[in-house]
Design a protein around this nucleic acid. Structure first.
Lengths: 254, 254
DNA sequence: ACAAAAGTGTTCCTTTTACACCCATGC
DNA sequence: GCATGGGTGTAAAAGGAACACTTTTGT
């Protein structure tokens, strides 16, 4: 593989690479949150090179596209999902944010990589990166590896591996911003399937905020917010009262 | 004046212009808030050209400097103030954010402006701009015009003129973000002089949040927060009880 | 002594938290 | 019937809003 292709793939684009089409020194990093097994997870690609390089889904911004559009494009390519809930949360702009260290590590372990110096220089310059986080229904996502990825995995936020560059800081800030937005009480919509029980919703809250809620008070809070509709009961076969299913009101979100 | 100098001045730098030193297509826009006469004001430069062009203090990012550093540099140049409270709040990245319309309007009214095509092209490309807001003690600021400015004025947020580009949107978002941060109850520190009375602090809150507070409850709230120290009384000569002066505790901010 | 404005205390109400009870389900 | 978990009601506690009262200052 050539550096050219590497950069093209890193850009989130599978088409012919040409850095002329992108804004130089500006990138987008995405933190994709999913929720499964009462755990908050992040979609993390592992690069298909020697050495354990974990990164974040990222890419560049085309000249003719909005910043938000670019983030959406990157996300859709990776998740095969449209209409993703997406929030810009921070710009990472330290002067030492460049890919040189990463590339040196990568090339040391993978000497077969070659490519034009020009492309390499373009890529290892200092980059300012806009952080976006996304909330997705983990069951609907079909993780799509880029040409560079060995695999993409949902990793619990508590068990993240060492990430290249400032990935750890980016995720930490994303989590903080997400929690803040969660208080609006409509954001959870995006992490759950269409229908869910009150208990499932409560578990989501407990996971996100990392604190327990009382069953009855939680139910009262949600119902008072008037953001969910009650549907039919869900008979699980268990020897107890069947819980109602709920769905978020169509008007109260997006 | 040449376009070259115009761009140099716009960049917030008074030194010899060279766009090589800056990150291309990335700019910083600052919303500088001050507080005076029970009014929230923004420092707005008016450009020294024919036509009423009002802008925001802005500039570009040098290759070797952090994003935050760049914002601080721009702010210090304009206010002659160090240690400014500064917050990044949003990135404006729509694809149609370019200076071409503004430049056409400007050149139509000021045909004497000339300069190399190259510089012009650099400047009118699409720009992604990082928004920062600052809170300053309005009495300490000595507004410093750039070479381009006819004047710089503190304009009440309610009475803003038409700004070039998306200035209005930027200020609106800055105000929203500032109000949000204000809830931390330490931010007000930066808008007031060293010492102040409880009434002055209350008026600040009433201005920022645009709603009345009750005198006694407000006092209780602030004292309970434990963020201010009570100093000596301030005798104004008025025929009433002298109010205490307060100052923010040195530990509770920054 | 009085008016004006600052400081403090006290009650009332709303919201939040904690506890208790009842209801449905399958064995 | 009974164990299990879901739904609802109510009391206690906390927090906030409104009101009243006291203190200080210069005339």
């Amino acid at each position: 593989m050539k550096i050219t292709e590497l950069i093209a793939a890193m850009s989130g684009s599978f088409t012919h690479p040409s850095h002329q089409n992108y804004i130089a020194q500006l990138s987008i990093d995405c933190v994709i949150f999913g929720y499964q097994d009462a755990t908050l997870k992040v979609l993390i690609p592992k690069l298909n090179f020697k050495g354990d390089f974990y990164s974040l889904p990222s890419g560049f911004v085309r000249q003719e596209e909005d910043l938000d559009q670019a983030a959406l494009r990157i996300l859709e390519e990776r998740t095969q999902l449209a209409n993703i809930y997406l929030q810009q949360f921070h710009v990472f702009g330290n002067a030492d944010r460049h890919n040189e260290r990463f590339m040196l590590d990568l090339l040391a372990l993978n000497p077969q990589l070659t490519g034009p110096q020009e492309e390499y220089d373009w890529y290892v310059r200092r980059f300012v990166s806009v952080g976006y986080y996304a909330l997705v229904d983990i069951n609907k996502v079909k993780p799509q590896c880029s040409e560079l990825d060995e695999k993409m995995e949902w990793i619990p936020v508590q068990e993240l591996p060492k990430l290249i560059l400032d990935g750890a800081e980016i995720i930490a800030k994303a989590l903080k911003a997400m929690r803040l937005h969660f208080d609006d009480h409509v954001v959870g919509y995006n992490l759950l399937p269409e229908t869910f029980t009150m208990k499932e919703l409560q578990q989501l809250y407990e996971t996100v905020f990392d604190k327990p809620y009382r069953r009855n008070n939680f139910q009262k809070m949600i119902l008072d917010l008037n953001i969910v509709d009650r549907l039919e009961k869900q008979f699980t076969g268990a020897a107890n009262k069947a819980p109602y299913l709920y769905t978020f009101k169509p008007t109260s979100n997006k």
